[in-house]
Design a binder for these strands. Structure first.
Length: 353
DNA sequence: TCCTATT
């Protein structure tokens, strides 16, 4: 649906490495997706597992900070089959994971012209809605995302927000046209400038971020998103956290799978047995149920080979014991539609030493 | 005065 770069502009695009046209068949605009608003603690393996549940993945990448290894909260998935990409958008877009609602959409062709196109806007009238702000900016180009920040308690606008344009030149034009201007009937002029670069975070900010993103989340599926936790006792946080967020931990599944944990074939973690799923149940329902409790590395719905219907049970693998225990405590007896789930740690009969 | 969308 997006017009491709070959649309005819004789301008200085495509410096030397065209993304397509090599053999006439490399158009990935229908297989390549971008995924936004991922939970901070999702790993590459979890990311791959989630999107691999839809269909064969050609490649996927969770984008991480080059230095800290921390997830930047978005990633790319390239499916082998365009139909699977379409299916991923239809079934995974809007999926709630922890406190985030993920967004799944086709990736635009990568290009320098779409980078640094994010604007920070302040001084907005408190009454201005996101839609009104978009209307104000839309005259300068195609808006990819917009957001108005609100007070976490009252929900009222803080008068600041973000506008991401498709192209950086559009953002530049918007600054020229709107910075210092008064929107229609507003008492004060707004300030429009490029947003801070995410990589500008100080070490202190990063540390704070680590503490916050690791604070225990609520107990219960899919609902309230309270972020009001106090920083934990410093003594209780450091090592497990650092391990969790280090590059070693992120890529460590391959080499040390199963060590010290009840491992399943799916990899290291705590395997959870989920019983009384409906015949129509699919992987996404397991992600929805367990995702809010913490790091989920794998989900599997057991299906009848011939009918392809769920046989009534499935498995979920979670990385951390306390999150798994919380999920079990909360979801065992949980009513899903007309059914009451039974949830417990998987009892392993194999491999009795 | 900053939500985290370009490999």
């Amino acid at each position: 649906m997006e017009s491709q770069v070959g649309g005819g502009p004789a301008g200085p695009a495509l410096p030397n490495g065209p993304l397509l046209g090599t053999n006439g068949a490399t158009d990935d605009s229908k297989t390549n997706l971008i995924v936004n608003y991922l939970p901070q603690n999702m790993t590459q393996d979890e990311f791959k597992s989630l999107f691999g549940s839809i269909g064969d993945i050609e490649s996927c990448k969770l984008v991480r900070d080059k230095i800290t290894g921390q997830s930047l909260g978005y990633g790319f998935v390239n499916y082998s089959d365009p139909n699977d990409a379409d299916k991923a958008i239809n079934t995974l877009n809007g999926l709630k994971l922890q406190t985030k609602t993920i967004k799944v959409s086709y990736a635009r062709p990568s290009s320098a012209s779409i980078r640094d196109a994010n604007l920070y806007v302040s001084g907005l009238p408190k009454t201005m809605s996101q839609k009104e702000m978009e209307q104000l900016f839309s005259q300068y180009g195609r808006i990819i995302t917009s957001r108005i920040l609100v007070d976490q308690v009252t929900g009222v606008s803080r008068g600041v927000g973000f506008i991401r344009f498709d192209k950086r030149i559009e953002a530049e034009e918007a600054i020229k046209g709107l910075n210092g201007q008064k929107p229609l009937g507003a008492a004060e002029p707004i300030t429009v400038k490029f947003a801070n670069n995410p990589s500008q975070k100080t070490g202190q900010a990063l540390l704070t971020h680590l503490y916050q993103s690791s604070a225990r989340r609520y107990a219960g599926p899919l609902h309230h998103q309270t972020q009001r936790f106090r920083p934990r006792d410093p003594q209780s946080s450091p090592l497990s956290l650092i391990a969790r967020f280090s590059p070693i931990a992120i890529d460590g599944m391959s080499g040390l799978a199963g060590v010290g944990l009840s491992g399943g074939a799916a990899g290291a973690g705590w395997c959870i047995f989920v019983y009384n799923l409906s015949p129509e149940a699919d992987e996404s329902v397991l992600w929805q149920l367990f995702g809010p409790f913490g790091a989920v590395t794998n989900v599997k719905v057991i299906r009848d080979f011939t009918t392809n219907k769920c046989k009534g049970f499935g498995f979920v693998t979670m990385t951390n014991y306390d999150e798994a225990a919380m999920a079990i405590a909360s979801l065992n007896g949980y009513r899903l539609g007309e059914r009451v789930l039974q949830v417990s740690f998987k009892t392993s009969k194999q491999h009795k030493a």
